[in-house]
Design a protein around this nucleic acid. Sequence first.
DNA 1: GCGGTCCTTGACTGATCGTTCCAACTTGAT
DNA 2: ATCAAGTTGGAACGATCAGTCAAGGACCGC
Lengths: 224, 224
Amino acid sequence: MQRQMAGVKQFDRGDVLERAMAVFWRNGYQATSIQDLVDATSVNRGSLYTTFGDKRGLFLAVLEHYSQRFGEPMMAELKDPDPRRAIERMLEAIVRRSRDSRWPRGCLYTNTSLECPGAGDDISRKIAELMAQQESAIYQVLRRAQADGAIDRVQDSRALARFFVGVAHGLNVVNKASPDPAMLKDMVSVAMRVWDAAKPQSKRRSGGQGNTRTRGVPSSVEPH
Amino acid sequence: MQRQMAGVKQFDRGDVLERAMAVFWRNGYQATSIQDLVDATSVNRGSLYTTFGDKRGLFLAVLEHYSQRFGEPMMAELKDPDPRRAIERMLEAIVRRSRDSRWPRGCLYTNTSLECPGAGDDISRKIAELMAQQESAIYQVLRRAQADGAIDRVQDSRALARFFVGVAHGLNVVNKASPDPAMLKDMVSVAMRVWDAAKPQSKRRSGGQGNTRTRGVPSSVEPH
DNA sequence: GCGGTCCTTGACTGATCGTTCCAACTTGAT
DNA sequence: ATCAAGTTGGAACGATCAGTCAAGGACCGC
């Protein structure tokens, strides 16, 4: 790093985005200064500007990187052939990531969507677009489940999709505010009862595979 | 306002907190400058500092004000004698407030808890404390419901409380990201099915008062 | 009416912000 | 050898940041 080399790209774009992502994720958009990013990426100020334009451009690139790095793997969990498992695995992916100390708490989408002033700017629109993709993917799983008869055709699958998206966001908020994995697991297991309540009546008592886990078992924190 | 008066307080603390709250709520903590607060409150810079210490002190006072102004009324909904209605009314209070254009979107707790760097500072601790109060209040309602036989004694009421707190946070995130009241109503009505699934078996089919509203009726946004 | 106390005021501080620019340098291609 | 491309450390820009301070006016008890 001491030696100054030039003429060819000295840094890998992916590496820089990875490091910049960690800083934005931990500190938020506003609280992250260019100097923080220079320090974290070991890339010169000028190089960052010529590569990404400005702070907003870099952040948008980071959002895209985050989408590939975390959003897509989470959505991939939805491909499980069993639709109930698909939803559950997606939610559990959030819980799993919350335990991974390599990454800051919460979700970069959620964090910055609440931080930035509101609709209008590029960043808010990008976030809204990515969130809409999530809802749409969940909706598709639910429609498929209805076609397969896993949940009742009379259910409003749009409302169900919105519910599960909302739970995902709630998980990220709770995780950021109070880092207790047990709290998140409780939330997921309870949320999945909605699925069991949405089964066709004939299947209602046939025992979904997850709804007994927390029943009657006290959660990790005792009442106070 | 032109005339300069002194020797006695020229401004009402409640008024100042009310106006400052609106600014912090809309812009977030970091993005709000002292000058913004001076402009919004029409109180001089020095007076703000002598009254509240510094920016953080003012924000902590704003948090307390917000708690009285919005947190407590929301918790008051939990006093409904019917425990199911109590929970539902609390969630609907969030939806109702989301429609009130007099206030910024989202929740000041949620917004700033995701914005600030994490545990450690005064602000994070204050937020965590207020959120814990919410969970505790919901927990008490659930315990009472178990004692009354409204929900099954075998249910883990701590996990249920965490779930409803998480849904409340999810509502605030979704509301901030995409201001569609129908989306929030869908989330609430689906979330309340968890309650109906937690009833004692003898009451299971007796028809909770809210779970049929969205059933079979398409929500306001068509699939795309 | 008078002194002391409190409040208000606007200018001021030093630091940091995002951003631009530059001279020096190394490399790959011509 | 020459040129264009690209990076580097650093200087510097104006703007804005949170926070400070001394001057001066207005109220209260006397």
